[in-house]
């Protein structure tokens, strides 16, 4: 039980996919213009991670080693298609704003990475926990980038005005702001890690 819990929490801090392993950067930067987009993207990716880990770990004994990568891709792509259709039906506005990045969840290195490094070698239950933890870690990382960018770039959070009397720095919601924010966040993370040693 404790071990399962560990699988869940390691993705959130110790092995955070974005800040520590530095994977899945493209969506982390592209959709973090607002907190709402970031949370939407995080939930979509968590859904895919959860189910792809579930299926891949239960199939791990039947899939021949040589063709495992194409098999993983098919499993992941099916769940991404499900998310695409669900999002278009139930959250069309969000689907429109995330645009091309919804189908691009397929090539999100985090999902492929977890399938290869964890789900294909472990039992079903730990794999599910791992997927869930990584998904939550990804969502948190995305949200923290988005929080900074939305606050400084628009003065809002989830669409509510937070900073009044404040001249928003438009650059933060544009491309350079995203790169800068993530760079500084990773540097801070490194700093904390170095201190602990």
């Amino acid at each position: 039980m404790i071990k399962l819990f560990k699988e869940l929490t390691k993705g959130i801090f110790k092995e955070n996919p974005v800040f520590v392993i530095v994977l899945g950067l493209c969506p982390a930067l592209a959709v973090s213009t607002s907190l709402e987009n970031a949370i939407g993207m995080g939930i979509a990716a968590t859904f895919v991670l959860f189910f792809s880990n579930l299926i891949i770990s239960s199939l791990r004994k039947f899939v021949p080693d040589k063709i495992r990568i194409p098999c993983f891709i098919v499993v992941i792509a099916s769940f991404v298609t499900i998310v695409e259709l669900l999002m278009a039906a139930f959250a069309p506005l969000l689907a429109k704003r995330l645009g091309i990045f919804v189908p691009l969840i397929v090539v999100n290195c985090i999902i492929m990475g977890r399938a290869e490094a964890f789900a294909s070698r472990n039992k079903v239950l730990p794999s599910i926990m791992d997927g869930l933890g990584m998904g939550v870690g990804f969502t948190l990382a995305l949200s923290s980038v988005a929080l900074i960018r939305e606050l400084l770039g628009n003065g809002t959070l989830l669409g509510h005005n937070i900073l009044t009397n404040f001249n928003p720095a438009g650059i933060m919601v544009l491309a350079p702001g995203a790169l800068m924010t993530l760079g500084i966040l990773i540097a801070i993370n490194n700093l904390i890690k170095n201190r602990k040693k």
Binding site: V22, P176, G177, L179, M180, L182, G183, A187, I188, N194
Partner: peptide, 23 residues
């Protein structure tokens, strides 16, 4: 440069400046 900026963080900051120029 500061230890914590070595590698990926500084690459991001450089990319940010290039992207600013491309704007």
């Amino acid at each position: 440069m500061p230890e914590c900026f070595k590698g990926i963080p500084i690459a991001f900051l450089v990319a940010s400046l290039i992207s600013l120029a491309f704007m």
